[in-house]
Design a protein around this nucleic acid. Structure first.
Lengths: 224, 224
DNA sequence: ACCGATCTTGACGCGTTCTTCGCGGCCGTA
DNA sequence: TACGGCCGCGAAGAACGCGTCAAGATCGGT
């Protein structure tokens, strides 16, 4: 079962979080201060941590730092509206997301799901092979028949997304959003240029692509 | 250098410990409460921890538990004569040794040596070799054809991270975060400078690196 | 307070990479 | 057949990233 650690000093909020998270199938551990939170995390490493920045020892950031020292567990930070500086510090320290109080329970649950989803795709086969080349996602390396193939950052980023969803159609918007950001979602010509460069480096016959397939008007597909 | 973390709320004792330990060649980090201690341990994992059970948040045991969650670092607990129960609890939680206050500094130092000696046999395969040099991760030493190569702390830290992931591409952000901290994630020029220095010390032809490879825009790769 | 080692910071040249644009081809539709 | 949408292609200038050097700034030890 997914284990969630909640560190908060407000007993009412703690109770509300416990009830809601439990109701959604999470196993909840709680602590009311930084020391207790870190100790609990040590005893029972959680799959996700929710940390209030306004702890009695004024040091929710210590929890983030303490966790980040040994764990990549997703951390969601709770903060009051005016604690901007602390929030930024917490994110710098390695927190993954933040929720400003007061917040709706549905929003928090959504962020919990998002954080877990983001963290989930870790343990996978990080090597995808085709007849023409091999993609090693962990080492960020592409090997062709003549040895290593050097990709530019953008090319690698595109290939990585496509390779993580083999045989699946990836929408143009999604590619543009993940590589260039939300405000570039219509610049489809970027995709054309960089896909062409990728094909030139990877495809045996770049003019007639076999692995990086265009689905006109929709997106692209990686077929191993 | 051997790193010792001391968690104690008594400033006099803290000072005495720092002076004595430093004098005996240990690198000392200190904290005055459980949260700070765990956070410090996360930032700079110690080789040994000395923890006073009588902390202001009454929870030295939390430090022991928090450390034991992710580390096998030897832990020596300090306790007042009458705190038998807490002492037992600390040992149950995973502490390695205890010293009853008041104690002689020589005794403590002896126990420190003993604890480190006991922990020493931690032999996995912490040695990575190339044709040009050898990296001993445990001993924190680099040996070249002409004997030992002296590295600065930053250089060693960088090389250590790269050597722990041979053949893997390590992202710039990750290097910056692990060596300098989360708020330096964009200072890529640090990497350029220190990598250049590393190459000057390690590479046969620093202008054409063979072991410390740059992947432009992405990060660096150590190829043994 | 001084000194050496180390780290930070800024500047420069150079090669690479990205962006941007125009052109031509393919295809479905009017 | 004409037309518009979409794609592949090539090329040019701009922007970026890297390596390098050298000058402060910082730190620890004497």
């Amino acid at each position: 079962m997914t284990r969630v650690l909640v560190v908060d000093d407000d007993p009412y909020l703690l109770r509300a979080l416990r009830i809601n998270l439990t109701a959604h199938g999470y196993q909840v551990h709680t602590a009311t201060d930084a020391a207790g939170g870190l100790a609990t995390a040590g005893r029972q490493p959680p799959d996700l941590a929710i940390v209030d920045l306004g702890l009695p020892d004024l040091d929710g950031i210590a929890v983030v730092e303490g966790l980040r020292g040994w764990s990549r567990v997703p951390i969601i930070v709770l903060s009051a509206r005016d604690a901007e500086a602390a929030k930024v510090a917490a994110l710098d320290a390695g927190a993954d997301d933040y929720v400003t109080k007061p917040f709706g329970m549905d929003e928090l649950l959504a962020r919990v799901r998002a954080a877990l989803r983001r963290a989930a795709p870790t343990p996978d086969a990080p090597v995808i092979s085709t007849a023409a080349f091999t993609v090693d996602l962990a080492a960020k390396r592409v090997t062709g028949p003549d040895g290593e193939i050097r990709l530019t950052p953008t090319e690698w980023h595109l290939l990585e997304i496509l390779a993580r969803h083999p045989d699946k159609l990836v929408a143009q918007r999604q590619l543009l959003r993940e590589v260039w950001g939300p405000q570039y979602q219509t610049e489809t010509n970027y995709l054309r240029v960089h896909l062409a460069n990728l094909r030139r480096k990877l495809e045996p016959d770049p003019a007639r692509p076999r692995y990086l397939i265009t689905e006109p008007g929709l997106g692209y597909r990686f077929v191993p």
